[in-house]
Every structure is written in structure tokens, then in C-alpha cells.
């Protein structure tokens, strides 16, 4: 068994402290009784109570959750299709273009994606709001789903599909009875990733939103610009808790496979 050297151990300790300390501080200070966010005034949950009465914030949260659910569902379907097209259809016309379109959004600066989508919606004269944000998020997140599912499909022993067909199973049924059950952990991880990316997005939503469709990040951003507030600490803590719970549950559910939702080599 390999042992960690002192140097490596120190590196890991500092690296992980760097990653987690700011979030830990945020969480701790959300329980600060003082209105001054930098002065410790004892433990309290008063800011969480304040949250519950903030109608706008709750509405924004519901918007965000609905958009995340809708866009992640769409993105999972489209992204899985794209992954299949890229790994299972050999060479077809326009394959290069498809792979270029799938990989580019992953690194494309968000301001460019956001601006271009808005201009599209304006040109097409679409009413902006819930549906335009959902469509925009689907575009971005389906590419992440594709990457996650594609990595799984590339490692997938293709003779399994051939065996199913050889035994009399037509292609569509083969997909649902053999391929899908085996790539399910990746598809689920892709869905979770899409969901959290959508929940997280500020820039693209800011461009493509419309009246009445304020999302949680847009709301938090407008508050944060005015300075640090204890309520915001509390909102953020709730979000962190929700995401952390989801991740832990997901990794427990997919315990068999090494399907812990990882960052798919973005």
C-alpha cells in the first residue's frame, strides 16, 4: 500500500482547506445573530426566519427549481441522444459539425452564449421568460450530459448490443433493455449535473430572462452587489445544504457503479 509523503500530505491538507474554508465560514456566519456580518454576535437562526417571509426570494427559488427541472430533463434526453449519435453511428454527414457544436459550449464564455441566445430570441420575436431561460439552459447543459454519457458509451463493450441483436432483439428494444440500464448511472449523473448548472447560472439567465422570471441567482446577485447581508449567508447555506444532500444521496444510490457524479472532464 502506498503511503503519502509529508509533502503530499501537506499539499492535500492546504488544498482542501482552501476549497472548503470559505464555504465553512459562510455557513457558520449564516448562524450569526449580529446584523453586522463580520462581528460575531452569538448563535441564532433568525436570518432563516427572515428568509421564510421574503416572498420575492421564495418566488425566485421556485422559478429556479422549475427551470432547472425542465431544462435538466430536456438536456438529459437531448444530450444522451447526441452521445449516442457520436459514439454509435460511425461516420455520418455533418458528424464533425455535431461534435464541434457539442464541445464548444463547454468552454464558451457565458457572456457570448447569453448574448447570442438573447439576440436569437429577439430576432425570432419570442416572449422572454421561463421558456427562454429553460431553452438556453438546455442548450448549455445538454453538452455536459453528452460528455458524461459519451465517456461511458466509449468504454461500453459494444458486443453487448450486438449480442442482444444477435439473439433477436431489434435496435430500439436493445437500447432500452441493454444499453440504457448499463449507462443509467452516467445518465443520472448527467441529469444531476445539468440540474445544478441550471440552478447555478447567472449570466445566461440575466440575458435571456423576461418580466416575472427572476431566478434565484439573479436575485442573489442583485443583493450581493449592494454588499454582504446575513440573509444572503442563510440563502447560500440552504443552497449548499440542498446540493450536498443531493450529491450524497446520488452517490449512495449508485454505490455499485463508480458513478459518483464527478466533474466530467469539462
Amino acid at each position: 500500500m502506498r503511503r503519502l509523503s509529508v509533502f503530499n500530505l501537506t499539499t492535500l491538507a492546504f488544498g482542501l482547506a482552501f476549497l472548503y474554508l470559505p464555504i465553512a465560514i459562510l455557513v457558520i456566519y449564516s448562524f450569526n445573530d449580529s446584523r453586522l456580518v463580520t462581528v460575531w454576535g452569538g448563535w441564532s437562526t433568525r436570518w432563516y426566519a427572515v428568509l421564510l417571509h421574503d416572498r420575492d426570494l421564495l418566488a425566485a427559488t421556485l422559478n429556479s427549481l422549475a427551470i432547472a427541472l425542465a431544462s435538466a430533463t430536456l438536456a438529459t434526453i437531448l444530450g444522451t441522444m447526441a452521445a449516442l449519435a457520436l459514439t454509435r453511428f460511425g461516420r455520418f454527414r455533418g458528424r464533425m459539425l455535431l461534435s464541434a457544436m457539442v464541445y464548444a459550449p463547454l468552454v464558451m464564455p457565458e457572456v457570448i452564449t447569453g448574448l447570442s441566445l438573447l439576440l436569437l430570441f429577439v430576432a425570432a420575436d419570442v416572449d422572454r421568460g421561463f421558456s427562454t431561460i429553460t431553452a438556453s439552459h438546455t442548450t448549455l447543459t445538454m453538452c455536459f450530459v453528452t460528455i458524461v454519457v459519451q465517456s461511458r458509451l466509449v468504454d461500453f463493450d459494444r458486443s453487448l448490443e450486438e449480442a442482444a441483436m444477435d439473439l433477436g432483439c431489434p435496435p430500439l428494444r436493445t437500447f432500452f433493455s441493454v444499453t440504457l440500464p448499463l449507462i443509467a448511472p452516467a445518465v443520472a449523473a448527467g441529469f444531476l449535473l445539468a440540474f445544478s448548472l441550471s440552478l447555478d447560472d447567472l449570466v445566461i439567465a440575466s440575458f435571456t430572462t423576461g418580466p416575472g422570471a427572476t431566478t434565484l441567482p439573479i436575485r442573489i446577485y442583485s443583493e450581493v452587489r449592494l454588499g454582504v447581508k446575513p440573509e444572503i449567508n442563510a440563502v447560500c447555506t440552504v443552497l449548499v445544504a440542498v446540493v450536498a444532500t443531493a450529491i450524497v444521496m446520488a452517490s449512495l444510490l449508485s454505490k455499485r457503479g463508480a458513478a459518483a457524479p464527478g466533474l466530467p472532464g469539462r
Binding site: S159, E162, A163, M165, D166, G168, C169, L182
Partner: peptide, 18 residues
């Protein structure tokens, strides 16, 4: 298509559905 041929194959990797 393969799923309508009365021949069956034993794969080198066995291709058992895990």
C-alpha cells in the same frame, strides 16, 4: 438484420449482460 437471422453468435468477450 442480425435480429432476424436464424444464426447465433458466441462472442469472444462473451458479451454477457452484466
Amino acid at each position: 438484420p442480425p435480429y432476424r437471422r436464424p444464426v447465433n453468435m458466441m462472442f469472444q468477450s462473451y458479451a454477457l449482460f452484466p
